[in-house]
């Protein structure tokens, strides 16, 4: 840990601390709406970190992370509604469930040499398969959804992840900041170096003694587990779950946008990406409302156009470019 801090550079340290201080203090001044936007920013930054670990560092393209998100969300939520097991305990069951799924997908893919687009399609296939399965799973409400009641005893207490926006705000902030530190730590650990090697050239990585299967599996373990925690947050924040939403490929896509826009394989890319995308989407919605246009599609059209523009002009993402502008180090891939 001391190492990352040491390498951050004076400006970087200052900026990091400043940002954290501002975010911790924000609820003093912010209204509900702003808080809800920031919660989304943290949520996407967090999930972006989780996905970026697998793709940005270990070089494995997953387009099915909704699987781990959904399994995390459903496990914790179902444990609470069916058995009264609270989320702080439930998360420790949700993690192994999602991690096991991730390890299975990884094992299947990497043992059988399914790589690149094929691996991506494998991950989609598993997520879609599970989505349809949950659509027909009666215990969790099938396609009619699973709901967290708001008036059962204790459901509004923080230890059951219930309560006002402040709770979710700080929770999401801790998740996002924690994930960023974890990723920064891993990046400069031997494991992080191994991931980079595997991403850059698997054969050369092998030649310097790296067990690439193992390295990829560990990346998947981290990524799926972290995503599952995000899923638990999702379940208890929205308090309703539908397979067609939480397992949808749209979820998988949405959670990879921030790291790609921000900068794949960078530590702050997911954060920067989330800081750009979420407020942009929100302000578009607000603009539409102000103009009196009731066309939710317009926001998404603009979103799509922006993706195309950014990937055409800044394929390495915004953060490496921004960091250079700000004179910060650490933008390196």
């Amino acid at each position: 840990m001391t190492n990352i801090w040491h390498n951050a550079g004076a400006r970087g340290k200052l900026l990091c601390l400043l940002l954290l201080a501002v975010l911790v203090a924000t609820p003093l001044a912010a209204d509900r709406y702003l808080l809800s936007v920031l919660i989304l920013v943290f949520y996407f930054a967090y999930l972006g970190q989780a996905w970026n670990l697998l793709m940005g560092f270990a070089g494995q393209l997953s387009l099915g992370h909704a699987l781990y998100l959904g399994l995390g969300a459903y496990t914790a939520t179902a444990l609470w509604t069916l058995f009264g097991i609270g989320p702080w305990l439930g998360v420790f069951i949700a993690i192994p469930v999602a991690a096991a799924a991730g390890m299975f997908v990884g094992w299947l893919g990497w043992r059988f040499a399914i790589e690149g687009v094929y691996f991506a399609l494998l991950t989609i296939a598993f997520a879609e398969f599970t989505r349809i399965g949950f659509d027909h799973l009666q215990v969790t409400g099938a396609s009619a959804g699973l709901f967290l009641s708001v008036n059962s005893p204790g459901s509004d207490k923080w230890w059951n992840l219930g309560g006002g926006p402040l709770l979710y705000y700080y929770l999401a902030l801790i998740l996002a900041a924690g994930a960023t530190f974890l990723v920064a730590y891993l990046r400069q650990s031997p494991l992080g170096y191994r991931w980079l090697a595997v991403r850059e050239d698997p054969e050369a990585a092998r030649a310097v003694g790296i067990d690439i299967f193992r390295a990829r599996m560990i990346a998947m373990l981290f990524s799926a587990s972290m995503t599952a925690v995000g899923g638990v947050f999702y379940g208890f924040y929205y308090r309703n779950l539908f397979p067609s939403q939480v397992f949808d490929i749209g979820r998988s896509i949405e959670l990879i946008l921030a790291p790609i826009i921000g900068g794949l394989g960078t530590i702050f890319g997911p954060v920067v990406g989330a800081l750009i995308l979420t407020p942009l989407g929100e302000s578009l919605t607000a603009l539409m409302e102000a103009l009196g246009i009731n066309a939710p599609g317009v926001k998404l059209i603009f979103y799509g156009l922006m993706l195309m523009v950014i990937i055409s002009l800044r394929p390495d993402g915004v953060w490496p470019w921004l960091a250079r502008r700000l004179g910060l180090s650490g933008a390196r891939k």
Partner: peptide, 21 residues
């Protein structure tokens, strides 16, 4: 077969990490 996007130093550090943690 270098690790193209990494620095020369990091390329070699990865090799060295075989013998040290």
């Amino acid at each position: 077969k270098p690790f193209p996007a990494l620095t020369v130093e990091d390329n070699v550090v990865i090799g060295a990490l075989l013998r040290t943690t």
